[in-house]
Write a protein that binds this DNA or RNA. Structure first.
Lengths: 195, 195
DNA sequence: GTCTATAATACGATAGAC
DNA sequence: GTCTATCGTATTATAGAC
């Protein structure tokens, strides 16, 4: 039986937008049904529970994040990769100032109770930190995890404050400062294996 | 008529804890009533709506934040004040790793829709940024707002990631790094008025 | 001021016709 | 696969006795 409908995709897309705007708990299935144009009762053919929709949205976000990170570190040196991610955040600063970072919002909202959703949301943050750590490792730093954490903390902290202040400009300003920080980092002599 | 009951305080205290753990929307009036030992129907004698309880909790948090900040900058130089706040965050890292920063959580959760609660929560973040900016101003920096923003972004970013990773140690590690950053800042010659 | 009982509604989920 | 109608429950809020 060929795929005749894109309802599942439409539901996920609608849920993604609504959850970013309103949060998971304030977003009702009726909201999602209405926005996606799928009748409420039909939603349950595609997702057994509301939580399943949330999981699908988070997996979608994770996929997009992974794709972005892959793009950032293709064919370029680690410093350029880190700065590429910073520029990416800069470009999205208007939406972030309005609605917050979608991944961070979910971490904060979901980790409050104990659904499996919480772990999925947290995993997105971990992916980002690990990626950043890998870049610093490639740069030869002895403490790449510490550097990666600091880098992502500054990214996420700026998005959080930009959201609280409703000010995209201060996000971009801080992203510029982050780029300068990266540029100013001392080059570390990399240990190369002699073969 | 003298105050004969501490019910109002008990309600706020219970709400504060529950909201930190579960978030505002997942916390029901029944939860608050039960935890505080006040019957559900009686809650409405003290607060007309759930939102009013939220407002009271946020004002309480703001008061505590202001008190903490005041304590940090009493009788000490600005660098010491900033580091004192960093140490304060370090000491609370276990709770933050478990439940997140209470102020940041509220900013993220409430700013999604448009209640007046959102503005109150955001105001807490602004208070912190302004305070930090004042410290950098006192240090003689030409761009105290930028420095204050960076400082708080790193604080909040670390708390956010520590919560996502469920790891208080990485918060403390980053707080140490923040202290070193402050120590390493160049002293700026302060313009003094000649009288 | 206090508390029980309950109204009013919103929401997740299901039944069952088509 | 699709959709309407509706159930069951949770939750905010109120009515009204004490």
């Amino acid at each position: 039986m060929p795929k005749t409908s894109d309802k599942r995709e439409r539901l996920i897309e609608a849920a993604k937008g609504l959850i970013h705007q309103q949060g998971f708990h304030r977003t009702t299935l009726a909201d999602i049904a209405k926005k996606s144009g799928v009748p409420l009762g039909n939603v349950y053919y595609y997702f057994k529970t509301k939580e399943e929709i949330g999981e699908a949205v988070i997996q979608e976000r994770k996929k997009k994040l992974t794709g972005t990170l892959d793009l950032c570190c293709k064919q370029v040196d680690p410093k350029a990769a880190l700065k590429k991610l910073v520029k990416y955040v800069s470009r999205g600063s208007d939406e972030v100032a309005e609605k917050g970072c979608p991944n961070a919002s979910l971490c904060q909202e979901l980790d409050k109770n104990h659904s499996s959703l919480a772990d999925s949301a947290d995993e997105c943050m971990r992916v980002m930190i690990d990626w950043a750590s890998d870049q610093f490792k490639a740069l030869g730093y002895a403490d790449p995890n510490r550097m990666g954490f600091e880098f992502v903390a500054r990214l996420q902290g700026a998005m959080l404050l930009g959201h609280a202040l409703h000010d995209p400009k201060c996000i971009r300003r801080h992203m510029n400062a982050l780029c300068e920080w990266i540029d100013g980092l001392n080059d570390v002599p990399v240990q190369r294996k002699i073969t």
